[in-house]
Design a protein around this nucleic acid. Structure first.
Length: 428
RNA sequence: GGCGGGGUAGCUCAGCUAGGUAGAGCGCCCGGCUGUUAACCGGGCGGUCGUGGGUUCGAGUCCCACCCCCGCCGCCA
């Protein structure tokens, strides 16, 4: 029995024609001498009708055993019928069972935790299918933009010997008897690579050993990072905006069906994205009744208040120095703030990008490391980048799952990735 | 790390305030059904009530300790 078509190719135009399909049983309804099998493949779903008097005994027996998520091959004639979901179905002429599926664990009335325990099976669901296709499209859009705008992709190591940001929590591991860590950002490696390629990017996981139990946090998340020589803060925001816009547009153009399945009514935001200062953001938050003082880092509540003021992503730039990591370049005109910017997604989603201009002077960088109480010797190779041909540069990191969560309207970040890692989840 | 919620059948939950023979829906198993839409109809199986201790004639229910899970905040992408 040959597979002649993918399900998405079976439409009204094929009425009366015999097709061979292969896939998995999405729904199964046995009425005695007629069986309805809703078949799923990578491309879509379609109803198949098996009638006892229309198929040979072997096919009938196969259809009887085609439980939910069994793999099957079906041959049949395409028919239009208003009673079929989508209006098109196939009248089965032959059926064979490829792999049985006795008592598939995921049924109706399953809770969030149970489905996460069975995530290796739950990714077969329409909901996860749609979310993961949107994610893949978004990542392809990021890569497409970088590749066509002069960026070279550079991969950084996952095993590292020291922190990028002092204070942030690292996963420690034993590296042949030495302490090593899982990377929390590829930034320092990308900074090294700008001296080779000027504009570089990477899309790879970062790890944070923070017990953050929220809808915005994973312990392992995919991090799209870019670093650009000869760029200042404004140029960095230009890059980030163009990148996000491109990838978002691509998802919007190519993943309409998937957004529909998720019930997401999404319109790509208009450019330009507003750019406001930290000072203005604090004013907005305070005017909305948020308890926050100049000098505090933006709280989740403050970010939400600010992002809800705009119908598109908004950059917040020039935070107080004490709220940001040591490598951020101070504003020469106002040394108490640094040349950084975060991009807040709309609808209260919050931060999806963090970045800014880096300190490129050796002396300044050493002074800031000492000021933060960090050990200069931990940053020896990083300091070399300021010893040899240092240039002004800037970069940023984008949280892939956070951005996908916004685009697809996914309530919890764990559903923006196939196999999420959270403080309590290591399986599957 | 702080605050809040929760752990009872394979799954989703009720029962706890006022201690008295452990329940429902779904699933599963068996049977029926020629147009179902996570079908429907009939029957059946199924639980050391998170763990340990205490009070009591009697504890899922009250008390103590512990473990685990979920959400929010902090931290960040």
């Amino acid at each position: 029995m040959a597979r002649t078509h993918l399900i998405s190719q079976v439409g009204p135009d094929l009425e009366g024609q015999e097709v061979g399909l292969a896939g998995w049983v999405y729904r199964y309804r046995d009425l005695g001498s007629v069986i309805f099998i809703v078949l799923r493949d990578a491309t879509g779903i379609i109803q198949a009708v098996v009638r006892s008097e229309e198929v040979d005994p072997n096919s009938w027996e196969a259809a009887k055993k085609a439980d939910v998520e069994a793999s099957v091959k079906l041959a049949g004639v395409v028919r239009l019928d208003p009673r079929a979901p989508g209006g098109v179905e196939i009248r089965v002429t032959r059926a064979s069972l490829v792999g049985e599926s006795p008592d598939f664990p995921i049924k109706k009335d399953t809770g969030v935790e149970f489905r996460l325990d069975k995530r290796h099976l739950d990714i077969r669901s329409r909901r996860m299918w749609a979310a993961l296709k949107i994610r893949a499209e978004f990542i392809a859009g990021l890569r497409e933009w970088f590749d066509s705008n002069g960026f070279v992709s550079v991969e950084a190591p996952t095993f590292v010997s020291a922190a990028v940001e002092g204070g942030a929590t690292l996963f420690e591991l034993n590296y042949f008897g030495r302490k090593a860590y899982l990377t929390q950002s590829s930034q320092f490696y990308l900074e090294a690579a700008i001296f080779t390629f000027e504009k570089v990017y990477t899309i790879q996981p970062s790890f944070r050993a923070e017990k953050s139990r929220t809808r915005r946090h994973l312990t392992e998340f995919w991090h799209a990072e870019a670093e650009m020589a000869w760029h200042d803060l404004d140029a960095m925001m230009d890059v980030a905006e163009a990148l996000v816009d491109h990838a978002v547009q691509r998802v919007y153009e190519n993943r309409k069906e998937e957004l529909e399945i998720l019930g997401r009514k999404f319109e790509p935001p208009q450019r330009p994205y507003p750019r406001i200062s930290y000072d203005e953001a604090i004013d907005i938050a305070q005017s909305k009744g948020v308890q926050i003082e100049w000098g505090d880092d933006m709280s989740t509540e403050a970010e939400r208040a600010v992002s809800l003021e705009f119908d598109r992503p908004v950059f917040v730039y020039r935070y107080p120095k004490q709220a940001k990591a040591f490598y951020h370049a101070p504003d020469p005109a106002r040394p108490e703030v640094v040349l950084c910017a975060d991009l807040l997604a709309p609808e209260g989603i919050g931060e999806i990008i963090g970045g800014g201009q880096r300190i490129h002077s050796y002396d300044e960088l050493v002074a800031r490391i000492r000021e933060e109480g960090l050990r200069v010797e931990d940053y020896e190779w990083y300091l070399d980048l300021r010893r040899y041909g240092s240039v002004p540069h800037a970069g940023f990191g984008l949280g892939v799952e956070r951005t996908v969560r916004w685009i697809a309207g996914i309530p919890h970040i764990r559903d923006a990735v196939a196999f999420p890692r959270t403080p309590t989840r290591l399986t599957p």
